[in-house]
Simulated assay, not measured.
Amino acid sequence: FCRDYGWHGIWMAVFHSVSAFCNAGFDILGTANNLYPSLTGYEQNPIMNITIMLLIIIGGIGFLTWEDIYENKLQFRRYRMQSKVILIFTLILIIFPAIFFFFADFAALPIEARLQAALFQSVTTRTAGFNTVNLSVMSGSSQGIMILLMLIGGSPGSTAGGMKTTTFAVLLANIVATYRQQDSAHFFDRRVDCNAIKTASTILTMYIALFFWGGIFISAYENLPLSSCLYETASALGTVGLTLGITPQLHVPSQLILILLMYLGRVGSLTLMYAALSGKKAVNSKLPLEKITIG
């Protein structure tokens, strides 16, 4: 930034560093001719790409995980189960989408720049909100993967939004346990509490419902393709800030929907639900049990 903007670039560098670490995605690089450039002018700048990606990841894995890293260093076995799950799933959710983006998009770029673009778009969808390429020209399948990544988001106790990596991990572990006919989901020889699975299922259901119905409303009201509207609602609900370019042209009702989704995604829909039901007394009695067929 100092090279491009002189001494003013120092303050711009600080602003973008904080924005990246906090997974905010705000940038102040717009001009009269290019209002919303984000970091597209730096798609082939390795220093900018690596620095921003590291800040996003550092802010997105959670402070409890960093406490584990600080206390136990490279002794991975001594980490909490949650920290292990967060680090492994964060790595998976960065590498595999990046590989897909590399082969599905950015064919016009040189190999090194193509690798940077693929990695950056994989990292930034985890609620960071920056982009180094034009997202609207990416393939439909890549945009679909980005929607999933935006909904998953970062990790608990971090600066990131979304339904969190641990939620996604617990649901996958429960699927594996069900498939293997095991009594409970587990990680690293540690059993996952049933309440955690119930909470994860509830969060997933609420996120899918808000994401899907918000996209349908905007698509019907604005007469826009549903895929583009779902991208916007996933970005809002995950508090990401990425867009395919339709946000500036939306009318007030659609903007209010996005604002509501951003609020629910940041505060947490479960938090609001618990606040509404916290006054109710717990009931110790149980209703009669009866089986129901699933699937």
Rank of each mutant, 00 (worst) to 15 (best):
I52G: 09
I69T: 03
Q121Y: 04
G241F: 00
T165L: 03
S201L: 08
L149I: 09
A98G: 13
F188G: 09
S19P: 04
V192Y: 07
T233K: 08
L39M: 10
F188Q: 14
T243N: 13
G30E: 03
K198L: 05
T293Y: 10
I94L: 15
L287N: 03
F101R: 13
V240L: 08
Y79F: 15
I61S: 02
G214N: 08
G153M: 09
R126P: 11
S219T: 07
T199N: 11
P37Q: 08
V252H: 00
N72Y: 15
M81F: 12
G30A: 08
G241W: 09
S38C: 01
F76A: 14
S184Q: 05
L29I: 06
I259L: 06
D189N: 15
L29H: 02
T65M: 08
A98F: 10
Y231H: 13
T271W: 06
V176H: 00
L119Q: 03
L261F: 03
N45L: 06
S278K: 11
A200D: 12
Q143A: 06
I57R: 10
C2L: 11
E222P: 06
V170L: 11
S83Q: 04
T65G: 07
A20R: 07
I152G: 09
P156G: 03
L258R: 06
F103P: 02
T293G: 09
L270V: 04
I99W: 11
T247L: 05
G41P: 08
L148R: 03
M163R: 08
K198P: 04
F15Y: 10
E43G: 02
T132R: 11
A160R: 00
E222S: 04
P156Y: 01
K198T: 04
G25V: 04
D183K: 15
G279F: 15
G162R: 02
L87Y: 07
I47Q: 00
T271V: 14
G157R: 08
S285A: 11
L224Q: 03
D105H: 13
I147W: 13
F212T: 14
A113G: 05
G161P: 07
Y5W: 14
G129K: 00
V240F: 03
L210F: 10
L244I: 11
T51W: 14
L171S: 11
N72E: 12
N49V: 09
F188S: 15
Y70R: 12
G59R: 14
Y231C: 02
L39R: 08
K84D: 09
N34W: 08
L91Y: 07
L64R: 09
S158M: 08
S141T: 03
G41E: 03
H186G: 12
A185M: 02
N223L: 01
R78H: 15
C2H: 12
P156E: 12
F76E: 15
Y231Q: 02
L55H: 05
M81I: 02
G60K: 05
L149A: 11
F168I: 02
I94R: 14
L287Q: 01
F103E: 08
L39A: 10
A185W: 14
P37A: 01
A169W: 11
T51H: 02
L230P: 08
S136A: 15
E232I: 07
I56C: 11
L93G: 14
T65K: 03
